[in-house]
Amino acid sequence: MKHIKKKFYLESKDVPVPLKEGKKLLTVDRSDNATLKNIKKGENISFVKTEDENYRLALIYKHQGQHIFLPVPDFTLVYFNNAYLNNKSRKNLEKLLFKKINNIENGYSENVDSEIYGYIGIATSAIIQMFTSLESFINYLIPDEGVYIKIRPEKTESYNKEQIQKNIRFMEKVKEVLPFFTSKNFFINQTLTNNHIVNLKNIRDEIVHTKSNFLYQSQTELLEKLLKFKYDDTLSAIRKFMNFYIKDYNIDCDCSSEE
């Protein structure tokens, strides 16, 4: 796996959204600060046109007194890309950490303290970003006006999109909510790929809700799990999950770089 193809919201060769009645498309010079300021104040959707003639949804942002366009990236892919980059850094740091430890002749030396802190920091960041990319993607798949119906023996419950995102647990989302809306179920069979996603969820919970107990045994166990976690396989599992629901959504960049 190499770095991913970077995508942006509502990117298209044409203006990606229909104009509402009474609205018009306004082309603005990016140096026209007064007009950009007024556009930002109103209920407008802003796009920036790239050099290769693509429109991208854009934020108009005030920076040092000037209003500028910032294209809005696909946050799900941003989180996945961060996880990929963190994992690359983690691999390099792990090699350095164990090289230093293995070269110590007379017991432990404090010259590996920075590497230990750095490894745990970058490893936990990679895992949290992996899980965040999954959550973001799942929430994206839920229709804006969709209503999830959960039938229980004693009652029937209904959830709108906001309620699903806030009140339905992660595993119910992947096993029940997504099949309800998409008629597709990535978890219909138990597979090694699915296990990677479940393991990701479990270790992410341990990181976010780090527990403490006698002699810090839970932290010792967490450190061992971070060292043994299947980072590459989990990134691949997340990609398979995403592309199962949206074909070619998460793909390698088509540039010549192998990084």
Rank of each mutant, 00 (worst) to 15 (best):
I120S: 01
T220S: 13
G42A: 13
Y55G: 06
N194P: 00
L97I: 03
N86T: 01
K20Q: 15
T182D: 13
H209E: 06
D248N: 10
S257F: 12
I68L: 15
Y84K: 07
Q217A: 08
K247V: 01
N139V: 01
D32G: 02
Y159M: 02
N243D: 05
E221N: 09
F75N: 06
D74R: 14
E145G: 05
Q163L: 08
L19P: 05
S133M: 11
K240L: 11
K7L: 13
E94Y: 14
L215W: 12
R90G: 00
N243Q: 05
Y79D: 02
F98K: 11
S12P: 05
G146H: 11
E259D: 05
M1E: 07
T210C: 10
R204P: 00
L59H: 14
P143T: 06
S114P: 08
G107A: 13
M130Q: 10
H67I: 03
Y140C: 00
N82Y: 11
D252G: 07
D248M: 03
C253P: 00
Y159L: 01
E53L: 13
F69H: 09
Q163T: 00
E115I: 00
I246W: 04
K225D: 15
V147F: 13
F181Q: 07
E162K: 14
C253A: 12
S136F: 11
I251Y: 09
S31A: 15
I207A: 13
N243C: 04
S46Y: 11
N213S: 14
H67P: 02
E162Y: 06
E172H: 11
M242G: 07
V72I: 15
L226A: 04
I101V: 07
L235N: 07
N86R: 04
V78M: 08
K230H: 12
I203A: 09
Q129G: 02
I238G: 01
D113Y: 15
M171Q: 08
I68R: 14
T191M: 09
T50N: 13
T191H: 12
Y108S: 13
I238E: 00
N106F: 15
V174P: 00
L26W: 12
K2Y: 04
E105P: 03
Y231W: 06
D113M: 14
S46T: 09
I127T: 01
I68C: 10
K99P: 01
F229Y: 14
V147C: 02
L227P: 01
K6R: 10
K201I: 00
L178S: 07
Y249K: 07
R30T: 09
Y245N: 04
A58Q: 13
C255V: 03
S257P: 01
G118R: 10
H3K: 10
Q219R: 10
G107H: 12
N189Y: 15
